[in-house]
Design a protein around this nucleic acid. Structure first.
Lengths: 263, 263
DNA sequence: AAGTGGTCTAGACCACAAC
DNA sequence: TTGTGGTCTAGACCACTTG
């Protein structure tokens, strides 16, 4: 078969892209296929937790070999966008029934007994509509003054308040989010975002500092204002690197620690 | 060709492993090839920075197809153990001429201008032979009282002391390490470990907390004892998950932050 | 021109899950 | 038994680097 796939409804453009401009911008076929699958994911053609079509079906749809589709899916799986299960199929990743709950939370109890810790108790302090400050607007790629939803909550482990979080969400996408919703949903908040708002967090970046809490923060975490805390500023992104959440966490690290693997 | 490679000097065992014991312990061919390449890397058959044999050569040596070798190398490259360069070959990864210097250091200046920051000024405070405490011994998989080398140093950026590190190394492997060596080597310390001691750090794990410094630490970092600092406890591993370094870092986060990407 | 890694294909067979 | 992802092969061709 020719390297250039035939024209078809879903078929990709010829692999060798690039017009008269400077760089050839060569893009391999499997990357183009990956992009097409990504578009379908983004468009919601397959919902979180559902199976996507089999490799053979996708190969037929895109007029390429199974191996090419496989390599595209390999990369999506490596980025945690889909999940493969031998004998069953490939499924759209979700924060709900994830192998690890709380995929983005790297705070673990100091005791080696990882994840024997029960789910956190949540206490919603606040949840209101506000206007974006310059800083919040920049983080969420909005304009200063745009409507945002701001929430504050405390997570406690076995009765000890351990995490204080301030969360900012674009008002547009999260219209109608209530404190009730934030507090009552069982399971990860990001799962609730998927189900109730169709917003899927795909990756995140964190900036970590050591800080001292102000009086309010100290009270909520049941520590003194002289207790050093971990400040974790997270920006979470959906598809296409669109920021959809700014989250400032204050972590107590007297019985927990932030764990990171380097390679 | 048969799925079972022929017996040869370097040829892997039959792909379907497992004797009469419980689990079949099936291991795909490419994993076995990966293991064999790993052994050669560990044995020093190819030095850091050198090229390993081409895929065709390895395929011939192991009596498998090029595609199988490719998949094995793919995984090694994903783990940063080797580095592929199209048209040139596959090279043993090194901390020396790494694309990013300081592969394991995630502290960045707050200014978005990443890595415009010059190299850190190093000041060795101390470097001596001591006996392992219970804690150090556990981290390095030694016995309490075994000889270890302990070093303390301060890293400064543009004149501001920013990182205070205490480092413990197994005395066995690092016999003869001097303060002179720690201070005078240009480039990453891990590169010096490779060249002078043949020890290659392959991955690491960090536990991060917020702490207050004691008087000594505060003095060395030019802060007060009320200044919250990031405590970064790192264990670095060579091949086969053998721990070879314990490092406790104190980071000032007034002009820098610890950056982490989640996916 | 020769050698390397990178892409793409087509087909065979294996392991796993569900019916 | 059927269908899924997973492995393995063999061969063709492309892109990049070096001589």
């Amino acid at each position: 078969m020719s390297n250039t796939p035939l024209a078809a409804s879903d078929a990709p453009a010829a692999p060798s892209g690039g017009a008269a401009s400077g760089t050839p911008a060569f893009s391999p076929l499997y990357q183009q296929i990956k992009g097409l699958i990504l578009q379908s994911l983004q468009a919601g053609e397959w919902k979180p937790g559902e199976a996507i079509p089999s490799e053979m079906e996708l190969a037929a749809r895109f007029r390429v070999s199974q191996g090419t589709v496989r390599k595209a899916i390999d990369e999506l799986a490596a980025e945690n966008l889909v999940m493969r299960r031998q004998g069953k199929g490939t499924f759209v990743a979700t924060h709900a029934e994830q192998h690890v709950q709380y995929r983005f939370l790297k705070l673990l109890p100091d005791t080696g007994d990882a994840r024997v810790e029960g789910p956190a108790q949540r206490r919603i302090i606040d949840c209101k509509r506000v206007r974006a400050s310059a800083e919040v607007a920049r983080a969420l790629a909005l304009r200063t003054g745009d409507p945002v939803i701001q929430a504050r909550r405390v997570l406690a482990f076995s009765g000890t308040p351990t995490i204080l979080e301030d969360i900012w969400l674009p008002g547009q996408a999260f219209k109608g989010l209530t404190a009730q919703q934030m507090g009552s949903y069982p399971g990860p908040t990001y799962a609730m975002f998927e189900i109730d708002f169709g917003v899927r967090m795909v990756r995140a970046e964190e900036k970590i500092r050591a800080v001292l809490p102000d009086a309010d923060q100290a009270t909520l975490l049941d520590v003194t204002t002289a207790t050093p805390l971990l400040s974790v500023e997270r920006i979470a992104y959906t598809y296409n690197d669109v920021p959809m959440e700014l989250r400032r966490g204050l972590y107590r690290t007297d019985t927990h620690h932030y764990r990171n693997a380097l390679s």
